[in-house]
Amino acid sequence: MLIIRQAAKLQWSRPVTLPKVVEFKQAMQHIGIHTPEDRIDFVRKQGVPIFIASEPFLEMEQYNIPVRLYAFAYDSNLSDANIFSMYIGQQRLCIDAADYEYLLEKYGQEALSAYSARISDLEKTITNMQGAFSVQQGRMNELMEQNQVLLAEKVEY
């Protein structure tokens, strides 16, 4: 099994040129998946082909670049999270633009509604904090007035 795992780290696929590809990390972030482990699990569950670009991405999308299929991306026993991390760090991991658009359409709305719910929660928290701040500010003003009265009495004595 060790020999098979080592062989799986090599890229056996032949290079092909895809018309349009999207950098993996940015694609996953736009879909709403932010943690590296969740990204790997997501593409495994969806069966989306993962490619390794010949050069690092300078932008989110690139056109007509040679890529190799990462054939072992879907097998949790053979694929290696370090390989995912290495290619993500090098900004060479990518998916086909058509697959990205499909995933964005299918799962992007869920991410958007989750963001909307989070924003709503944060707005409520801010409103509550502003109310608490206002109460504290009022209390502080009262204490300052009391302090002024006490200082005036102190000067009299």
Rank of each mutant, 00 (worst) to 15 (best):
R118V: 03
S120P: 02
F51S: 01
R68I: 07
E23H: 12
V43Y: 08
L58D: 14
V16S: 04
T35N: 14
I31P: 13
R92L: 04
L10K: 12
L104Q: 15
Q91H: 14
G32I: 08
L18W: 12
Y63E: 15
I33Y: 09
Y87V: 02
N64V: 08
V16K: 08
R39G: 00
P15D: 15
E59W: 04
I83D: 10
P36K: 07
F51G: 04
R14Y: 10
P66M: 03
Y70E: 03
Q109E: 10
Y115D: 14
E23L: 02
R39H: 13
V67G: 06
A73Q: 02
A7K: 15
S116F: 05
S113I: 04
P49K: 01
G108I: 02
A114V: 05
Y102A: 08
N77K: 11
R68N: 12
F84G: 02
W12S: 10
Q109T: 07
E55Y: 10
A71Q: 13
Q46W: 04
I88A: 06
T17E: 12
I52W: 05
A7F: 13
C94P: 06
I119P: 12
Y87M: 08
E110L: 14
V67D: 00
Q109D: 07
A111W: 03
A73M: 04
P15W: 13
E59L: 11
P19L: 05
V48K: 02
E37Y: 13
